[in-house]
Computed example of a mutant assay.
Amino acid sequence: MSAVSESISRRVTLGYIASHYGFELEPRFADGVTVTSVADTPDSVRPGALYVLRDDEEPSWLSVAVSRGAYAVLVPPSMAASARSAGVPALLATPDKATLGALAADIAGTPANTMAVFVVCGVEDDEIQADVVRVADFLHMLGNPVGIVSASGSSSLERELDMSYPLGILDIQHLLAVCSEDGAAAMVISADSQTLRPGALEGVNVDVLGTIEQLDRGGSQRAFKETRQRYGFSIDEQKRLVTCTEESGWLAGQASASRDLQSQRRLSLAIAMAMDAGVRRSNIRNALRVSKEMR
């Protein structure tokens, strides 16, 4: 599935899309046509969709998308004749990943802006995914409804979400919108090759980027830059890559009943990322104390 669903999107006109993103609209008098979702595979098209034809796809897929209810199509200018043959209005453009991400977020209602977004990166996919689970558990311990995006299992609060990995731009906006609609206050995303395609986080504003890897200042800066370039998210220029600190390590050691050092490091990373998001140390200590007493 690669779509931003109608049930979680806002309605936008083709005229707005054309003027806002610099696309050409044919015919021009179709500027009042409203689309309620966006999809880039024919099988994910729903009535009212804007269908985005990928560069490597056959023009014949346009007719399939229209038969499934697409109200309009977005195609490269070279395919204008094929779009006219499909019988629906066409936006002519070859948007880059950043533009497609912005468009998908726009139609989805910019769901990332309603939540705190945490992204975990690193070297090994399995370790990153395990770190994501620990960060999500800790944020939940602090009282936050949490959504998870990970190849090991995506979820919205307690509800598991069935997805095909790796995820693309539209998949991510769909997941964010579902979790926002469910009331999630935080999202934790696994930035690994099993979970995300390159550029998948275009249109997503990230609040905290963290890793369990032990890096020096230069390595931290490189990892920050490379992760941002690979997945395309935006983040405050003043932010840094969050790693385990002496304080977060001490708190994790005091709170954890496990002698497994890796488990303590994962908890330490979760604490450090929560602190970077502005969670007060007193709240963290209280949550850790309650969790320890419950065990």
Rank of each mutant, 00 (worst) to 15 (best):
G69W: 05
A252T: 10
E127P: 02
E58V: 08
K225L: 07
C244V: 08
A18D: 03
V123Y: 11
S152D: 01
V64N: 07
V123P: 00
G278H: 10
I212D: 13
V188M: 00
D40G: 07
R285F: 04
V204Q: 01
A287G: 15
R280F: 08
E246M: 14
A177H: 13
G278W: 10
R281Q: 09
T195K: 15
Y71S: 10
S60A: 15
A90P: 01
N144K: 15
T41R: 14
A252Y: 14
Q221N: 10
M294G: 01
D96R: 07
S220P: 04
R46A: 14
A80L: 02
A274W: 01
V75A: 08
L74M: 06
D31I: 12
A270Y: 08
Q238A: 11
A277V: 01
A136Q: 12
L251K: 10
D260R: 09
R228A: 02
P27I: 03
V133K: 07
P47W: 13
L251Q: 09
D162F: 12
V208D: 03
D56C: 01
G48C: 03
D125W: 04
Q214D: 09
V66P: 06
R281L: 09
P47R: 14
G232A: 11
A86T: 03
E24F: 09
G101L: 07
V290Q: 12
D171K: 06
V290A: 11
A136T: 11
A130S: 08
F23P: 12
T94F: 12
T110R: 09
C244I: 04
D56K: 07
G122C: 05
V66Y: 09
L261M: 09
P111G: 02
A272F: 15
R217Q: 14
E124N: 03
R281G: 00
E58W: 13
V204D: 00
L176G: 00
S220C: 05
E293K: 12
G253W: 05
V33P: 12
S164G: 06
L241T: 11
A270T: 04
P89M: 06
D55G: 00
E293C: 08
Y51T: 01
Y16E: 15
I189L: 08
V206E: 04
E127M: 05
M1G: 15
A177F: 13
E237I: 02
S78F: 14
P111A: 03
L53G: 02
T227S: 08
S193M: 00
S156M: 08
G32Y: 13
I189C: 07
L267M: 13
A39K: 05
S193V: 00
V290P: 08
S234L: 13
N113E: 06
S263T: 10
N144G: 05
V73Y: 15
A102M: 11
Q173I: 03
I169C: 05
R134I: 02
C244P: 04
G278F: 12
L251H: 09
I235C: 04
K239I: 01
L103Q: 01
N113G: 07
P145A: 04
R230S: 01
A70W: 14
A104S: 12
S2G: 02
G210I: 02
E293N: 11
G147C: 10
I284A: 06
E57G: 02
S180V: 05
L103Y: 01
E181I: 01
R134E: 07
D207L: 01
I17N: 11
D207G: 02
I189W: 10
R266H: 09
R259N: 07
